[in-house]
Amino acid sequence: MVALQILIDGFAISSLYALGAMGFTLIFGVSGVLNLSHGGIMVIAAVIGWLAAGDLGLGVYLGTLVGVIAGLIAAYVTYFVVILPIQRSKAIPRDENEIFILTGTLLWGIMIQVGLAYLFTDNPVTMRPLIDGVTYIAGVRVPKNEIMIAVICWVVIGLLWLLVNRTPAGKRLLAASINPRGLTLLGFDLSRIYFFVWGIYGLLAGVAGVLLASFLGVSSASAGQLTASAFSIVVLGGLGSVSGSLVAAYIVGYLETMTAYLIEPTLRPIPALLLLVLVIYVRPQGILGRR
């Protein structure tokens, strides 16, 4: 009974983790940016979605859409306001770009967090479930919304797979992540590819944020934790490896769920973090990392 409960609960939360982390790793793989404002962008999507669904009276579906669009806009703002100026700055030495981007996005994330807390308090917001009610799977009571969330996550993951593997634009993404210089030599404009990948990232983070709000609830205070969890999943799976972060998301999700059910809810994040330390020692490139 508990085993089944863990299986079902772990699946939903892992799918959400996967969605959040895949965008994060995609950005890193293609443009070399580690975006530490990731959690903040997810929270923006959640809060705006909640606002649109409730206060603006758009209902849960339109609200979800508005939230996802807010995530997309937040991602582009991050790119154009924080990342591009750093990359183009002549004052910053080229080989220090990465550390400046890390710092820049970290500060940006804190600004988002504090700003949202100021405007909307740090109380968690929750979206109304997409479908209300519960159902029983082999005797285990499961909110229908939880199933819906897992399904949406997998549809989006499937679409992402199709995009990357079956469309020309996706193939350019893949190429950019393997050898950006080669792509430039072939006459492709890297900035357009970056624009494209930030759009995908924004949509993924937006969907993950809104779904998380309807599943567990999200507050501005979650921003740091969400960034940290995406970061550890991505490091575990291998920086830049999309399929690696998919696998890692499920490992982390299930490890956490098992800890919460079998040992103690308070210790939930600990084993996953221990595993991360272990992986860094034994296999620093991550589970499916290339280098």
Binding site: V2, Q5, D9, I13, L216, G217, S222, Q225, T257, A260, Y261, P265, T266, R268
Partner: peptide, 14 residues
Amino acid sequence: RFNPDTTDFTPIYN
């Protein structure tokens, strides 16, 4: 007694 940072209460309710 649970940690105030808890986000998922399912295991506790369970």
